Amino acid sequence: MTQTRTTLEGACSSGPDDWLADTRTSYDTVAESYADLVRGAMAGQPYLRAALALFAEQVQAAGGGTVADVGCGPGDITAHLHGLGVDAFGIDLAPAMIEIARRDHPHLRFEVGSMTELPLPDSSVAALLAFWSLIHIPDDLVPAVLRHFHRVLRPGGPLLVGFHVGDETQLKTEGYGGHPMKVHVHRRRPDRVADLLREAGFTVKAQLLVNLDGSLPGAILFACRG
Rank of each mutant, 00 (worst) to 15 (best):
M97F: 07
A206Q: 13
A200Q: 11
K172R: 14
A101I: 04
E111N: 07
G177H: 09
A130T: 08
G214I: 00
L108H: 11
F131D: 10
A144Q: 14
F110K: 04
R103F: 08
R189V: 12
L108Y: 13
T169Q: 03
K172S: 09
G175E: 10
L141E: 15
D92R: 02
A127S: 10
V165F: 03
E168Q: 13
L160P: 11
I91E: 03
L208F: 00
L146E: 00
M115W: 00
R147S: 13
I100K: 04
I100T: 01
L134C: 11
P106L: 09
E99Y: 02
T173D: 14
H164W: 11
I98N: 03
G156A: 07
V210S: 01
L129I: 15
P155G: 00
A101L: 03
A130E: 02
R102Y: 06
G177K: 09
L159R: 09
G201P: 11
A194K: 07
E111W: 10
P106K: 10
D104Q: 14
I91C: 02
D104I: 01
S215Q: 10
V210L: 11
A96K: 14
R147T: 10
P121H: 08
A206P: 01
M97W: 12
P121Y: 08
V142N: 05
G156Y: 13
R103L: 09
Q207H: 12
Y176F: 15
D92T: 01
G162P: 05
W132E: 09
T116Y: 15
M115E: 04
F202E: 09
V185G: 06
I91N: 02
T203V: 12
S215V: 05
M97D: 00
D104N: 14
L171A: 04
